[in-house]
């Protein structure tokens, strides 16, 4: 198993007045006892409404927030310790955020943005950096001439592809896509999803595709996990939505124009 979540919970302190400087108050459970496993080369969709805890779960996987309880294991090794050097985790696991405009530093050109992970993770390949940057852009169906552009000179779809190229530059084993196509129009969404499917197959990459849109999982995912109010209510790997047990999952899939998954 590549990535495994064992009974992971996350609780945020409530906004009421703190009684102690050093002890957190009990508060809102954003993620509640989630168990999930992702195999190598597998694409898992994580679907749920806004506020169901999808993005929090992604942050917990990346150790960007400490878990309240439970374990996050990458290749069997725990990666959720507070003092852990996250650089090692990021080498194997990358997160692509929803808002590509704010994910790209506006004062850097695309070339500098793509060179950053290469410089930090592959310093010994310095001579190859230029070719790698151009290759990464080609991989995400972009023209290498865009290397000299600033993010504000790119369209929304191009920015999202650059974000993906940046994640791919690290050569990770798993990429978490947190609502990464949500801000794109439908033709761009379809194009990006097709590109993701191609890259996933070529590189035997594992993907965790987080979305609130069930339809987009259809094109990409081998398995769909459904989150509701912080809990993983159902994991669904079949092609027939009649297998669904939980009322929320049924409601979610019934809302789709074509019921077959």
């Amino acid at each position: 198993m590549l990535l495994e979540l064992r009974d992971v919970s996350k609780e945020y302190p409530s906004r009421t007045r703190r009684m102690s400087l050093f002890k957190p108050n009990s508060g809102l459970k954003a993620v509640n006892g989630v168990n999930l496993a992702i195999r190598k080369g597998e694409c898992v969709g994580l679907v749920g409404e806004s506020g169901s805890g999808k993005s929090t779960l992604a942050k917990l996987m990346m150790n960007m927030e400490p878990v309240t309880s439970g374990q996050v294991l990458l290749k069997g090794q725990p990666i959720h310790e507070r003092k852990r050097n996250n650089r090692k985790t990021y080498k194997q696991m990358q997160l692509v955020l929803q808002d590509s405009s704010s994910s790209l530093y506006p004062k850097m050109r695309v070339k500098e943005i793509l060179e950053e992970p290469l410089r930090n993770y592959f310093p010994q390949e310095k001579a190859m950096w230029d070719a790698r940057c151009a290759g990464l852009l080609e991989l995400v169906d972009l023209d290498p001439s865009l290397l000299s552009r600033y993010p504000h000179q790119l369209s929304g779809g191009q920015k999202q592809r650059v974000c993906l190229a940046k994640a791919l530059a690290v050569r990770p084993e798993i990429i978490i896509l947190d609502e990464s196509v949500a801000s794109l129009d439908e033709p761009s969404q379809r194009a990006v999803l097709a590109m993701l499917k191609r890259i996933q197959k070529e590189q035997q990459l594992s993907l965790l595709f987080i979305t609130h849109d069930v339809k987009s999982t259809r094109q990409l995912c081998d398995r769909v996990a459904i989150m509701y109010q912080g809990k993983l209510v159902e994991t669904f790997s079949g092609r027939d939505c009649r297998q669904l047990q939980h009322p929320y999952s049924r409601l979610l899939f019934q809302a789709m124009p074509d019921e077959s998954f």
Binding site: Y90, Y105, Y121
Partner: peptide, 13 residues
């Protein structure tokens, strides 16, 4: 709090 800082961390900076 900007996303590009998070992104920079993931790039290994």
């Amino acid at each position: 709090k900007e996303d590009y800082i998070l992104s920079a961390r993931m790039s290994g900076n």
